[in-house]
Simulated scan of single mutants.
Amino acid sequence: MSAVTPYVMVDDATRFRAFLEQVFHAEVPVRVPLHTDPARTIHAEARIGDGSLFFADSGPDGGRCLRSPAEPVHVQLWTVVPEPEAAHRRALAAGAHSAAPVTVQDDGSRMGGFVDPFGTLWWVCAPA
């Protein structure tokens, strides 16, 4: 069996975790603190529905973590959620800005997007 799991490096993993929990009702069963600075995260796993997303603090003291690039990394994450309108509203309340309002697509699905406070573009969708 094969799988791919996105890994997002952010400047504040604690805030990113709170964002994921608020917007997607994510569960974070795994968080490994940086041994030299336990407030920072060297690795974490968030579960959103049946999927997983790994994340960590970026920065030079993060061991395998790298410093955030000077230019934004263009990452898009596609999420299937039961109520994309509600996820979109929660994201905006949590500091994201809208990239596209949730609308009905030609195939009957509902989709919209937002950019989180960490620079990641999220698409939220409910199938038709």
Results as ranks from 00 to 15, higher is better:
residue 83 E to I: 02
residue 40 R to I: 02
residue 83 E to H: 15
residue 25 H to R: 14
residue 101 P to T: 02
residue 14 T to S: 14
residue 10 V to N: 07
residue 100 A to K: 14
residue 76 Q to R: 12
residue 66 L to M: 09
residue 69 P to Y: 11
residue 63 G to K: 04
residue 114 F to L: 06
residue 17 R to C: 15
residue 36 T to R: 09
residue 85 E to Y: 02
residue 42 I to E: 12
residue 43 H to W: 11
residue 94 A to L: 09
residue 20 L to I: 11
residue 54 F to R: 01
residue 114 F to E: 00
residue 91 A to F: 11
residue 55 F to T: 09
residue 70 A to R: 13
residue 49 G to Q: 10
residue 2 S to G: 04
residue 22 Q to C: 02
residue 103 T to H: 04
residue 93 A to D: 15
residue 52 S to H: 07
residue 112 G to H: 02
residue 127 P to Q: 12
residue 124 V to Y: 04
residue 117 P to D: 07
residue 14 T to Y: 02
residue 11 D to G: 15
residue 112 G to T: 01
residue 83 E to M: 09
residue 31 R to K: 14
residue 15 R to K: 14
residue 10 V to P: 07
residue 4 V to L: 14
residue 14 T to H: 11
residue 126 A to N: 13
residue 97 H to V: 05
residue 42 I to F: 10
residue 16 F to W: 11
residue 32 V to Y: 13
residue 85 E to G: 12
residue 7 Y to A: 08
residue 71 E to L: 13
residue 58 S to I: 01
residue 10 V to W: 12
residue 25 H to K: 13
residue 125 C to W: 07
residue 1 M to A: 09
residue 11 D to Y: 13
residue 105 Q to C: 06
residue 8 V to W: 04
residue 88 H to S: 10
residue 92 L to H: 11
residue 111 M to K: 04
residue 23 V to R: 09
residue 54 F to T: 04
residue 17 R to L: 14
residue 13 A to Y: 03
residue 2 S to P: 01
residue 59 G to P: 01
residue 77 L to C: 05
residue 122 W to S: 00
residue 66 L to H: 08
residue 88 H to L: 13
residue 118 F to W: 02
residue 118 F to L: 01
residue 8 V to D: 02
residue 116 D to H: 08
residue 9 M to C: 12
residue 107 D to C: 13
residue 91 A to P: 04
residue 120 T to A: 15
residue 8 V to E: 01
residue 56 A to T: 09
residue 33 P to M: 08
residue 41 T to L: 10
residue 39 A to Y: 01
residue 80 V to F: 13
residue 73 V to F: 07
residue 74 H to C: 04
residue 67 R to K: 10
residue 33 P to C: 08
residue 85 E to K: 05
residue 65 C to F: 01
residue 31 R to M: 15
residue 39 A to S: 15
residue 122 W to A: 00
residue 81 V to E: 03
residue 80 V to P: 00
residue 60 P to Q: 07
residue 12 D to L: 09
